[in-house]
Amino acid sequence: MGRAPELAQLDRWLLQDRRRLLGVFGLGGIGKTFLTRRAALDAAPGFTAVKWVLLQDGPPPDEVLAECIHFFSGYRDTDLPPSTAGRLDRLLAYFRQARCLLILDKLEAIMQPGRSAGHFRAGYEAYGDLLGTAAETEHRSCLVVIGREQPHDMARWEVQSLRAASLHLRGMDVPAAQAILQDARIAGAPEEWAALVAHYAGNPLMLQLAAAPIRDLYAGRLDAFLAEERFAFGDVNDLLDEHFGRLATGEQDIMHWLAVERTALAVTDLVEHLLPRRPVGDVRSTLASLLRRHLTDRDAAGFFLQDIVLEYVTDRLVARMADELMAGQPDLFRRVAAAQPGCGRAPAAGPGTVSRRAPGRAPAPGLAGDG
């Protein structure tokens, strides 16, 4: 499955290091659930009981705590405490008595959209208490959380305790992608496969979603598909819509600027664009939030968007600006001054300069140019 190093890391944390709290985070479709399920199967003999809870429908914390207490007690404990705090204490008692493995999947379903990443929805804060209890209290068990967003306090728990750790799942390499698509009847040269995987950032689900159009519309020819230079469409857009729809306004502004500039931007560059609307501290905290959502990447040159996210945000930005101009309400133009002279230019080449603009790709259409 192309995840041997990541699987080995999870196995080590579960069985050798005996971590109390683990997180597996990454974009939708990156393979978090598949990898964690495999790791849980490998580690199961080392635990007394293993329970998987799907949070997609937003079950109230009291219900999940009751369900877990029943399960880890062998369905003998039926006299439940009425309070959430009491149920947390009862579950912790079972975590201390035996080696339990509890996995909470789809954590983003109970996170608050429209604000910085990693905060729980109103009424669901007890899940954060559960994570904090697992990380900070002595016990024999392990709680694993899987989600598209890293909880806000996860980094603090990792620093304060060697018993908490996070795995941020990245894309797959070309051989792994070819293995996933081996039955899709797609043909291409090695460099074309590399380009396909790079455009979709090695995301297994995005690659699978793209496979059908490549086969049906381009007769399975990668060269013909790549020549179109359009990769964000259909179900791929739907997947990215789910992520973008959760962003706070400040996060959207930074994503828009990264799409307009189409190159890596340092924190100071983004502060220059966003001031005086947003204080320096707000820009930094917003960038940290986007990293917790895995929607931006970072290297020595600064923050940038992967190709597929860049194309998606650019298309969305152009469409929204057009709608606003037609309606006579250019709100986005006021927040993202896309017509600013020099906007969209890559920095002058020099020592240490790394451009993230895709080879041969022009500035965002309708957004940037030489003035």
Rank of each mutant, 00 (worst) to 15 (best):
P213F: 04
Q340V: 13
D238G: 12
G202Q: 01
F47S: 04
G369R: 02
T133N: 08
P279E: 06
F333N: 11
A300W: 07
D216L: 10
E251H: 12
P365G: 15
F303V: 09
S289E: 03
N203C: 05
A109F: 00
P276C: 09
A98C: 10
L222G: 02
D17H: 09
A198K: 06
K106F: 10
P347D: 09
R76T: 08
L88V: 11
A177P: 01
R76L: 13
V64F: 05
E138V: 14
R278A: 11
L21F: 03
L275I: 15
L15Y: 07
D57V: 07
D105R: 04
Q150C: 14
L295H: 02
Q9V: 10
S161Q: 10
G28R: 15
S285D: 07
T48N: 06
L169T: 04
A109W: 02
D17P: 01
E228P: 01
L291P: 05
G350E: 09
L102K: 02
A187I: 08
R230W: 06
P81K: 14
A211F: 10
P61E: 08
F71K: 01
G360Y: 12
R38D: 00
A322C: 14
G74S: 09
A364L: 15
L196T: 05
V159S: 11
E136L: 11
E67N: 13
H273K: 15
A109I: 06
S73E: 09
R293F: 06
W157M: 14
L21Y: 02
S116I: 11
P151G: 04
A248Y: 04
P82C: 08
G350M: 09
G202E: 03
A109S: 05
L169D: 01
H256D: 14
D282L: 13
A40T: 02
Y75V: 01
S161F: 11
T36I: 05
A364W: 12
R334C: 12
E229R: 15
W52V: 00
V283F: 00
G371A: 14
D216F: 08
R284F: 05
L65R: 07
G350L: 11
A194C: 04
D307A: 15
D297R: 14
E63F: 11
V236K: 07
E272M: 13
A364N: 15
Y75Q: 09
I30D: 00
V309E: 08
L274G: 01
R345M: 07
M111N: 00
T286C: 08
Y218A: 08
S116Y: 15
A117S: 10
A319L: 10
N203M: 06
V336R: 03
A232T: 03
P113S: 02
W52S: 01
L305T: 10
Q150F: 11
E191D: 12
E63H: 14
A322I: 15
A264H: 00
L265Q: 07
